[in-house]
Amino acid sequence: MAEFFKTLLKGVIYVVLLPFILLVWVLSAIYCVFIFLYSAIKNMIIFFAGGNPMGDLPEDVKAKKILTERLIQPQPSFIPTAAAPTPAVSVEGSPAPTAESLRPTFVTETSDEVLNRQEEQDQGGDDDGNFTQTY
């Protein structure tokens, strides 16, 4: 019931505001026609001058550049270092694994390094055919 009255109230408001809404619409229509004609003439001039009328604006170009750079920026890759091998059975006198040895380390690689590493891993070795364990 409350919803019904809300809709009814909205209806009353819309009916009261209808002339103003229509006025805004008509003024916008006139403005849009002018904008369209202006854009059409401008685009035609740009087109015949050899440009791209629908090309990116300077802000778009900058944004694209920044976003692309962000994508290829070096990402910190999570590569756990080989922890000291701990015996399965505790042997008396052997050193207990330290927190330092168990902590994973973050190695920062540049994008080129990541690509080279991936290539090496794909090929299964380096150029000489020797397989090298990098990490």
């Binding site: 849009c32 059409a40 685009n43």
Partner: peptide, 30 residues
Amino acid sequence: DVVVAGVITDRKHLIRFGIKKNHRQLFKDA
């Protein structure tokens, strides 16, 4: 994109840019 990339950092510039894009979109649509 321009907001996320931080190219536009103030309201007035965003409105100016948005209006330009809006005019282009209007032309594309109409």
